[in-house]
Design a protein around this nucleic acid. Structure first.
Lengths: 153, 153
DNA sequence: ATAATACTTAAAGTACACTTTAAGTCAACA
DNA sequence: TGTTGACTTAAAGTGTACTTTAAGTATTAT
């Protein structure tokens, strides 16, 4: 299959200018052209853009993503660099999971606290002194489970 | 207690210039001065910087953090805005947990794949055809547990 | 007394990842 | 035939969050 820039743009919810930019910096390569100079993308580009999406969600910078594709060109030669990049990334992600979880807990505490204030304001009452953190919800319970496991490590 | 800019800078691992910048944009307020014009931070500033750290890890932009502190000034008046901000943030965080988890899985798959290549390269052997994704490690198992729970929702 | 260190300011500079602009080409439709 | 719409390019511009620079003041150490 082949695709126009508009189709790829829609498929990945990314501006056409961004696709041109990715090509300019070498993140997308081998983009064919029609006789009129219009870009033609292939399934290989779809695959690469899916990978780019994944790497971005993994917190990788464009230059790290470029490195990955560079290493991928010659797996044997670059195997050490590749393993370093991937190991480092998985470590960073785990650290970030832990930190984000803590922040998430704080946000939930604040939500609970202001939830009591909201209730008090709506009832035109005084804020009760016992307003504090409780009623952990489903999501938080779930996240706590994982964090306890991670802490054992 | 009071603190110099150097002490706060070290405590929070943030450049002194960043602390001045935060003050300039109103993220830190009421910073006292010595007779010589040097900044003097209090425990209130320590508290605020901890909150800023938490909000940044929660993915909030500086302007959202500014909004939070603005709303905090008059809880009753701003209670609706405050609840909106916190609810939105917790929702975004949950979405991001889910997306990050998927990306993390992909990174682990790649680690496993290149792990086999590494082994093959080191043994100067051919890459076996059966090289694929398995041996999920402890962290991934743990993360999977949480994700399955989140998906039930 | 002199030199190093730690701060101060305002303004300019940086890094990252796009995004917009301006001018032009080409194909399809009324 | 003309005009609309989708593309093209190179270059300049944008937003976020700092960071650096340059020039100056004050405290501390030798």
């Amino acid at each position: 299959m082949t695709y126009t820039i508009a189709q790829i743009s829609e498929k990945f919810d990314v501006a056409a200018s961004t696709l041109r930019y990715y090509e300019e910096i070498g993140l997308l390569t081998n983009v064919e052209r029609t006789v009129n100079g219009r870009r033609v993308y292939s399934d290989a580009h779809v695959g690469r853009l899916s990978a780019i999406n994944c790497f971005k969600k993994a917190g990788m910078s464009i230059s790290e993503i470029q490195d990955f594709f560079e290493y991928e060109k010659d797996e044997e030669k670059s195997i050490d660099d590749m393993m370093r990049l991937l190991r480092r990334r998985s470590e960073i992600m785990l650290e970030e999971f832990a930190e984000s979880y803590e922040s998430y807990e704080h946000i939930l505490k604040k939500l609970d606290y202001y939830g009591h204030i909201e209730k008090a304001v709506k009832q035109k009452k005084q804020l009760p002194k016992w307003a504090n953190y409780r009623n952990k919800d489903y999501h938080q319970q779930a996240l706590e489970t994982i964090m306890q496991r991670l802490k054992k490590d």
